[in-house]
Amino acid sequence: MKKTVLVGMSGGVDSTVTAILLQKEGYEVTGVYMKLHENEGYHEANFEKVKRVGAYLGIEVHFYDLSEAFKHEVYDYFVETYKEGLTPNPCVMCNRTIKFGKMIEFADRLGIDKVATGHYLNCDGQFFSAGKDHAKDQSYFVAQVKKEVLPRLIFPLGNWVKEDVKAFAKEIPPLKDIGEQKESSEICFVENEYTEILERHMNIDQEGETLNAQGEVVGKHKGYMHYTIGKRRGFSVHGAHDPHYVKAIKPETNQIVVGTRDQL
């Protein structure tokens, strides 16, 4: 019986090469493009690339609308976490609930055994480990994936480096442009700055007090949601000669606490 695998395909070079490599290994490959958000024009362009790769490989590709689940599991978590003065990691949440949650369920409905993506990491069925390309290693972002799904996961790019992946795609004339395209954004639904997302839901521009480690008011800031721990710009510290960094955020009073590097 032929081995079957569902590949999460984005229209990017990593998932494209993943599908090609798995087909070369003898897998019966099926592709799925997951719509995760409502950014206008984004999905239409990417799914056209996925269909082109599907046609080249002679494989079936699906368009799977997960925007409602993504909003509930990832987007709302992203907004609420910043509201609480914390820094979210939407990719960790997405990998647990969507890519290796909902995509596993979709594979089950199609009767497909394995699931693969273009992540740069390795998995032996029990544990994740770092990929060969340390600059692109994504093993951290799967830290919360449910352990029971690990035996079903395949990551063909675990032993590749990004430049070789791009070079591989460029050697295939119909897919050369995919190998040459720019990197996608780190957070798929954030086009420029994360604050642009928050502005859709609340007023983030509310001036507040900057405090030192002793709780004394030493300056002003433009609204606590503009800051994450370690940030060193965008607030004032009167009379400071050394760089100051955000070391705590107090959302309930719209205050930030700052200190010098040795106070972090």
Rank of each mutant, 00 (worst) to 15 (best):
G12F: 07
D14C: 08
Q23E: 13
K24Y: 08
Y27V: 09
V32C: 09
K35H: 08
L36E: 05
E38N: 14
E44R: 10
N46H: 15
F47D: 00
K49W: 06
G54W: 00
Y64A: 01
D65N: 06
F70R: 01
K71W: 14
H72Y: 08
V74A: 11
F78P: 05
E84L: 12
N89E: 14
P90L: 10
A107W: 04
G111W: 08
I112E: 01
T117R: 03
C123R: 03
G125C: 08
F128M: 11
F128W: 01
S129Y: 14
A135H: 11
K136G: 03
K136N: 06
D137M: 04
D137F: 07
Q138L: 05
Q138H: 09
Y140F: 15
Q144D: 15
V145I: 09
V145C: 00
V145P: 00
L150Y: 11
R152M: 05
V161K: 07
K162D: 11
E163Q: 09
K166H: 12
A167M: 12
A167N: 14
I172P: 04
I172G: 03
P173F: 06
G179V: 06
E180M: 13
N192L: 11
T195E: 11
I197H: 04
E207Y: 14
E207T: 15
I229C: 01
V237T: 11
K247R: 15
K250M: 14
I256M: 07
V258S: 08
Q263S: 13
